[in-house]
């Protein structure tokens, strides 16, 4: 936390979490906030931005992104997650390639050029399969904390094949598997695999250039990282804080605006 006022703010109003990054003139991170997205998103965005800018909006450039971006009324500009994620990951990793972002309620694959430009993208935005929501629903049903799912999956001695990619049907499939006496950890491993295969198929549809990079809240799961590397046939690079890549990209765009670029 810094007392210095930022000149650039990026706010990513995602379906599950809201992330805010504030930068100073040099691009140094002054503040970082991650909280659950409120049903009253507009109010939440207002509160966060009021707090971070000290109400001195005339001195700050703000870029909003994420599904709720239009609700950040004080933003200078609204930009889609695609552009913000590309900007953020390029800044963090210093090279192009293919970014796979698995968020709370959507997942996307973005092909980024050597200069950081978006060349191609695809999104899974109509259904919860292949998103964090899929794991969340399953975790609820299996009554294990979502943070432990990755570890549980990796340590499982065996794997149960989950055939439904649909989050709703997967839930009923889980009930059936539990009734058959399948161990919980085997099911958890199968679920992580199912999500990864879905996302990898989406990535393959773009003929993705290497290297692969991963962002989004779900990237925190070690099982997802391991299985994804397996499915793609090579290691997946991870930024230090995968969950804030979109907000960081937005903040960097705000900094560009501030500097008149």
């Amino acid at each position: 936390m810094s007392n210095k006022l930022p000149v650039a703010v990026g706010i990513d109003l995602g379906s599950a979490f809201t992330k805010v990054i504030a930068l100073d003139e040099e691009g140094k991170v002054l503040q970082k906030i991650i909280e659950d997205t409120d049903p009253y998103t507009e109010k939440q965005a207002g509160r966060l931005l009021d707090g971070i800018t000290g109400g001195e909006y005339h001195r700050v450039s703000i870029v909003a992104t994420g599904y709720g971006r239009k609700l950040a009324k004080r933003s200078t500009r609204a930009v889609t997650e695609i552009s913000c994620h590309a900007k953020g990951i390029f800044h963090e990793m210093g090279h192009g390639g293919t970014l796979i972002d698995i968020g709370g309620q959507d997942s996307k694959v973005i092909v980024i050029s050597d200069t950081g430009a978006v060349l191609n993208f695809t999104m899974n935005d109509k259904c919860a399969a292949g998103t964090g929501r899929f794991l969340e629903v399953s975790a609820n049903r299996l009554k294990i904390p979502i943070e432990l799912m990755g570890k549980t999956a990796l340590e499982a001695a065996s794997e149960v094949k989950i055939t439904s990619t649909c989050a709703v049907f997967a839930e009923s499939e889980i009930v059936g598997l539990l009734a058959k006496g399948k161990p919980v950890d085997h099911i958890v491993r199968g679920l992580a695999r199912s999500l990864v295969l879905r996302v990898a198929a989406m990535a393959h549809s773009l003929h993705p250039p290497k290297p692969f990079m991963l962002s989004g809240g779900v990237a925190r799961s070690p099982a997802i990282r391991a299985f994804l590397a397996e499915a793609l046939g090579q290691a997946v690079e991870l930024p230090e804080e995968p969950q804030i890549i979109g907000a960081l990209g937005a903040a960097l765009m705000a900094l560009d605006i501030h500097k008149g670029k």
């Binding site: 599904y67 930009v79 889609t80 695609i82 060349l119 935005d125 109509k126």
Partner: peptide, 16 residues
Amino acid sequence: LSWEQSENRLQAFFEV
């Protein structure tokens, strides 16, 4: 058609 999602994709495409 899900308009919201399509609009989001279009906006991203415009940015490209």
